[in-house]
Design a binder for these strands. Sequence first.
DNA 1: CTATTTGCAAACCCTTTGCAAAAAT
DNA 2: ATTTTTGCAAAGGGTTTGCAAATAG
Lengths: 135, 135
Amino acid sequence: MEFLTVLKERGLKATPQRVAVLKELDKKTHPTMEEMYSNIKEDNPTISLATIYKNVNLLKEQGIVIEINMPNGKMRYDYLSYPHIHLVCKSCGYIEDLDYDENLFKFQKSIEDSKGVIIDRLDVVASVESCKFCK
Amino acid sequence: MEFLTVLKERGLKATPQRVAVLKELDKKTHPTMEEMYSNIKEDNPTISLATIYKNVNLLKEQGIVIEINMPNGKMRYDYLSYPHIHLVCKSCGYIEDLDYDENLFKFQKSIEDSKGVIIDRLDVVASVESCKFCK
DNA sequence: CTATTTGCAAACCCTTTGCAAAAAT
DNA sequence: ATTTTTGCAAAGGGTTTGCAAATAG
């Protein structure tokens, strides 16, 4: 199981709660804390919201989970199994993962060269007014 | 005064409090709500924090002010007088405005073409571990 | 004059914390 | 056996709300 490796590499214990959080985050549904809580509760009825928070924050510190600040102010979370960016719909909140492309790499390189820095992370959120999933 | 025009165009009343908020946001210091509050308070001692919130949120809805979700979880705000992106330092929190470049435009265009969407907004935050302003 | 905005204080989340019990390695 | 993690309930803190008074146009 990939998640167990990811956790072991970082010296984190593989509790059922923690693995469940990673699984939820890996579904590409970009859930909120509450959504993870209610989904995980189905199989793990005793889990608490505080445990979701603690684990998500821990994984965020490890850089493998990121926070997406939605236009409506709500936070959503995503497992960053590989670098990607987000296309979000402002009307319905749908989020799609998009791969980096050549132009984005060039953009990053040109900032690094002109500013003399190494970019550690590039968060990109492209917003559209409405999408094919809007009613 | 540019701000008065910006407000009039949107049918918003130009109260001294609102103009002061715009001025703070235009200083390129990317202040927090509290920072705006204490700065504005110096010249306008009766202003309330709630008024800062109400005005910033209003300007956000108008799309002329954006929220920057800092790595530490704190929110900072910026007047989007022209489209630009942010280079943020994870250690000291310094934020620098950077212009769009050719590559970023190409990137945007390629998503629009491949996905058949019009990107309404492109939020980019490039993070570095430390910068020249870190002690 | 009318509609909007302000300022205050209270209410409202969402998120974090402390701690004893439980679980992982 | 040791260290980490969980779950609970309470505390915390940033943000919003309701409303009467003040202000802008």
